[in-house]
């Protein structure tokens, strides 16, 4: 990942790797829950926007999590 990666993508991906050991569905939920508990609304909105625009920039689990939030 480069410096130019949008912070929301970087942060979501950093969260996602911590849940790789869990079954994908559970992991996506846990990631979504974490984001709900700790993220400001504008960051959530930005993440959803970025996920729609460039889904490949997100870890698959982070991407799955965005569907739970959205």
């Amino acid at each position: 990942m480069t410096e130019e990666t949008p912070p929301q993508v970087r942060l979501a991906n950093e969260i996602a790797v911590q849940f790789h050991h869990r079954p994908p569905e559970q992991a996506a939920q846990a990631i979504a829950q974490h984001i709900r508990m700790f993220w400001d609304p504008r960051m959530k909105a930005a993440l959803l926007r970025l996920a729609a625009a460039d889904p490949n920039s997100l870890d698959p689990l982070a991407l799955a999590a965005t569907r739970e939030i959205g």
Binding site: P7, F38, D40, P41
Partner: peptide, 9 residues
């Protein structure tokens, strides 16, 4: 009811 920004945010 939703969290705000953290310092780095």
């Amino acid at each position: 009811s939703e969290p705000g920004l953290r310092i780095p945010n």
